[in-house]
Design a protein around this nucleic acid. Structure first.
Lengths: 119, 119
DNA sequence: TGAATATATGAGCATTCATTCATATATGAA
DNA sequence: TTCATATATGAATGAATGCTCATATATTCA
């Protein structure tokens, strides 16, 4: 294919882009989830919960962080439907609401591994 | 399996967790990538670049944002190896460095779609 | 009921971060 | 070389965010 054809396709694509991009309200849900994943504490909580359901106190112990801090972060994860909870006696047990999440983590790790090959 | 066995497995899992969680330096790379995805502007840039390589100016036009703002965000994406660039005449063309990224976006969208079914 | 334990929540604070503005750098054209 | 265009960059600013501290709520146990 000729240089001109590439250029035409590019112009075409460029023109379509402005309309074609999903609008803010559609993207917001995705961005919010990535925001949630963009914090070390929340990532560790998620990784811990991927092994077994845990109470708030157990998570705080595991991560060596305050109960309050963990509770705040859990409420963010819950609002995004990333975790769900259920009271069991005095404790409240949290669990991952969707194993999908771990797939996303793994996919991202793979991206990083590929990077390491460029040098 | 009995209630006690569940409890024992839980204790076992809990005990393993504190050692088992990846340490901060390992997680940081992943967290940084999610941080990058956790911003509307950067997500839009990535989506645009997934259609076709674009110059800085073209991106700024497409997203209706200042050249400076786009340039700042591109430098963040570049540092994370999410995009690469090449000068072409007066312009600098950016492209996605890895199509993996779009897979991650799609996977995340699927998570959201599943959520919508709970009501 | 009262004490102890587990969790949630709101305010305050320090930090991070996205954008803007001004300006520097690099390229192509005249 | 000089001008115009494209991009990068640093400082400043306002908004968002994560943690702490104090306190409220809920549950169990004696």
């Amino acid at each position: 294919m000729s240089e001109q054809n590439f250029e035409m396709e590019h112009q075409q694509a460029l023109h379509n882009l402005k309309q074609g991009l999903p609008d803010d309200t559609d993207l917001e849900a995705m961005v919010n989830i990535f925001k949630a994943f963009g914090d070390m504490t929340r990532v560790k909580i998620i990784l811990a919960l991927s092994e077994t359901p845990l109470s708030v106190g157990e998570i705080a112990d595991t991560l060596d962080m305050s109960q309050s801090s963990i509770s705040h972060q859990l409420s963010i994860l819950k609002q995004l439907n990333l975790v769900s909870n259920a009271r069991r006696g005095r404790n409240i047990h949290y669990r991952l609401s969707d194993q999908h999440i771990i797939t996303i983590f793994n996919q991202t790790k793979e991206h990083i591994i590929e990077d390491d090959n460029d040098f």
